[in-house]
Amino acid sequence: MDMSEKGLIITAAPHLRDRVATPRIMQVVFIALMPAALCGVYFFGPWAAINLVVGVASAVLWEYAIQKIWKFDITISDGSAALTGLLVALTLPPAVEPWVTALACLIAIGPGKIVFGGLGYNIFNPALIGRTFAALSWPSVLSAGYVAADGITAWKRGFDVVASATPLGLLKTGEIGATSLSRFYGPLFFGNVGGSLGETSAIALLIGALFLLFAGIITLRIPLVYLLTTAGLAMLFNQDPIFHLLSGGLILGAFFMATDYVTSPIKPAGQIVYAVGLGIFTFMIRMFGSYPEGVAFSILLMNCFVPLIERFGAQKRFGEVRNRA
C-alpha cells in the first residue's frame, strides 16, 4: 500500500507544520476563546455580538475572495481565517462600528497572511496586523467604540451605547493613581469594566487558557514568562502588578496570541527570550509610550525578532563546520 494514500507525508526535518491537525487545533482554540467572547457579548450588549459575527464571517469571506481572485488554493476549511476573524473582533472595542472590524479582517487576511504565502509563512500575527492597522488608521472611531460594561442594562439599552474609558486609559491620563488599585481587581477579573471585546474578563480567558493547556495545544512557558516579566517590571517601577496583569489585553495576548505556533520561537530558550521581550515592550509602552496599551505592539515587535532568536543556539547540522566570521 502506498504511504501517501494513508495521508502520511514523509519530509526532511524540521517538521514545523502539521496540515492534518491544523483544523483541529483551530477548532480547539476557537472553542477556548468562546468563554471570553460570550462574556464580552453579555457585558457589552448587542454591538459586541454583531462585531463577533462580522469578524468571523468577513475574515472567511475575505480569504475566500482573495484566494479565488488570485487563483490560489482555497484554505477556508482549515479554520484559521475564522479564528483570525474572531481574534480581530476580540481585540477591537466592543461597540466599534462594524465596518472597522470588517476592514481590519481584510488587512489581517490579505497583507497579514496571504501575501506572505498563507498560513505557516506569515511573519506577524495576522489578527494583530488587522487590529493595529485599524487602531492607527481610525483612532477616533476606535476610541468611540469603548463602551460601559453593564451586562443586562447594556442589552436593555440596545443599540444606544454609553462611552466608557478603559482602566489603562484612565491610568495613562492620570485620572487614577499608579498604586493601590485594588478596587479594579474584581471588575477586571470578572469583566464588568471598559475595554476591548474579549480582553476584560480574566476568568473567562483563564478558563479558555486552561482548556488549551489540557488539550496540549499550548505550553505554559511563553505566557508565564510574559506575565511574570510584566508583573516584575510593574513592581520595579512602583506600579500595581496585579492591576497590570489583569488589565488590557495582556492575558488574551499572552495565552492566545503570543503562543501562536507560526510567529513564536520553537526552542525553549528562544521562547523565554521572546516572552521576556514581550513583557519588557508591553510594560515600557504602557509606562512611557503614547498609547495606553502595548500588548498588540509588543507581540508584533517581538514577531520581527523571532528569526533572529531562532538563530541563537541553533543546533549544528551533522558535519557542519562553524564559520568563524
Binding site: 492597522f133 492607527l136 488608521s137 481610525w138
Partner: peptide, 12 residues
Amino acid sequence: AKFAAALVDKPV
C-alpha cells in the same frame, strides 16, 4: 473622510 485610513499616510 471618516473611512480614510490614516496609517496609509505614514511610511508604513
